[in-house]
Amino acid sequence: MTRFATYWRVWRLTAANALQIAFVNRGTNLFFLLGKAFRFFMGLLFLLLIKRTVSTVGGYSSDESDDL
């Protein structure tokens, strides 16, 4: 358990340092957010294309999955 706590502290420190790289200056911030937004919209586009083309997924229609 003590070892796990040490691992957690080391991970938290390295993760915080890695995150700081992404927010080190305004330009990097912008590129980071643009990248994340781009990935999100591409995922959304993929889902929209699937929804438009496929009527049922795993036996559920789009309306049925909305009700879940």
Binding site: I21, A22, V24, N25, G27, T28, N29, L30, F31, F32, L34, G35, K36, F38, R39, M42, G43, F46
Partner: peptide, 21 residues
């Protein structure tokens, strides 16, 4: 500023190289 452009480029390549679909 080397990390940001590279990150954006990688995201774009993931998609445009056909890695995601």
């Amino acid at each position: 500023e080397t990390w940001g452009p590279k990150f954006l480029f990688f995201i774009f390549v993931d998609f445009s190289a056909g890695k995601l679909f």
